[in-house]
């Protein structure tokens, strides 16, 4: 069977700006797929072409075996979309919003109310959408995208502008949805979010996908150095230099940092000398992958 999503050679330009410049990827059924990149990378444009909201200049998209453009009424009930900025009817309460969206899909109000409960908004049912907090609005928006039980869910930066607690709550919700067997495509500019949530990520910059794969694999593929930090004075700088010939040693007066590709013997020898005070060990992250791919620091 073909993949749930097949995207091939997408191009989209706005005047001089190549918003999407040759993007191809596939997503399998049940997968949690992330498109990761800084602002302006072309994530929203890519996602909206895939959803069928915008027309590509060139390239092909297949969702569940069908073309989303021009507007494909057979496909619409099978996909759920949460847009980057939430879209609600004016002056309607949370319950009225979700019931309205539900009925557009022929879904009854009981199911709509259950969905409100599921995203933890049952106690806000009578509150007008514009009076909800950022996190509540995002949850309502996701609930409206899911109310008709779509097989395929698109989420455009669902946790942007949320406080850490609200982000974590939303992560739990998204994981639960994915566990029910739904395919999720999510865009984000948070590296940690992609790393924690996604089965597979595509790293995007300037309209192109630079690399894609499971986050752990991307990081491992870097074969990058590990940073070991201990308190200054735990071991003399000269001694550290003598002991660990292959490592970079640096002391800023507060902590002493060793950058090495062979962390195990270094840690063992520090332990022997009882020099592990203030120890922290940091391996590579997706940020290092981005740095490695683009030659510049990741800035969301």
């Amino acid at each position: 069977m073909a993949s749930t999503i097949v995207v091939q050679g997408l191009h989209k330009a706005y005047g001089e700006v190549k918003a999407v410049d040759g993007v191809s990827f596939e997503v399998e059924a049940g997968e949690f797929f992330g498109i990761l990149g800084p602002n302006g990378a072309g994530k929203t444009t890519t996602l909206e072409i895939v959803e069928g909201l915008r027309k590509a200049d060139a390239g092909e998209v297949r969702l569940l075996g069908q073309a989303p453009w021009p507007r494909n009424a057979a496909l619409l009930p099978r996909i759920g979309v949460q847009q980057q900025a939430s879209s609600f009817f004016e002056r309607l309460t949370a319950r009225e919003q979700i019931r309205t969206f539900a009925s557009l899909y022929g879904v009854g109000s009981k199911k709509a109310d259950d969905m409100l409960e599921l995203v933890g908004l049952a106690d806000k049912a009578e509150v007008r959408a514009e009076k909800l907090s950022g996190g509540q609005m995002q949850r309502l928006s996701i609930a409206c995208a899911l109310v008709h039980d779509p097989e395929l869910v698109f989420l455009d930066e669902p946790t942007a502008a949320l406080d850490p607690q609200a982000r974590r709550n939303l992560w739990d919700l998204l994981r639960a949805i994915n566990t029910q067997g739904r395919t999720i495509v999510l865009t984000t500019h948070y590296m940690d979010e992609a790393e924690i949530l996604c089965d597979r990520v595509a790293i995007m910059d300037h309209g192109r996908i630079l690399q894609s794969g499971p986050p752990a694999e991307l990081v491992r593929g870097l074969d990058s150095a590990t940073r070991i930090t201990i308190e200054t004075g735990a071991i003399a700088v000269d001694e550290a230099r003598r002991l660990f010939q292959g490592a970079e040693v640096d002391d800023d007066g507060v902590s002493l940092t060793l950058v090495t590709r062979t962390p195990a013997p270094v840690l063992a020898s520090l332990a022997e000398r009882n020099a592990l005070r203030g120890l922290s060990v940091r391996g590579a992250t997706l940020e290092d992958v981005f740095l490695n791919l683009t030659g510049r620091e990741y800035r969301a």
């Binding site: 619409l76 879209s87 609600f88 004016e90 899909y105």
Partner: peptide
């Protein structure tokens, strides 16, 4: 205008209405 500005029209376009 409001429905376009608030992206409700595009949301409706994504629903089978």
């Amino acid at each position: 205008v409001t429905w376009r500005e608030k992206r409700i029209l595009r949301r409706l376009r994504l629903s089978p209405v």
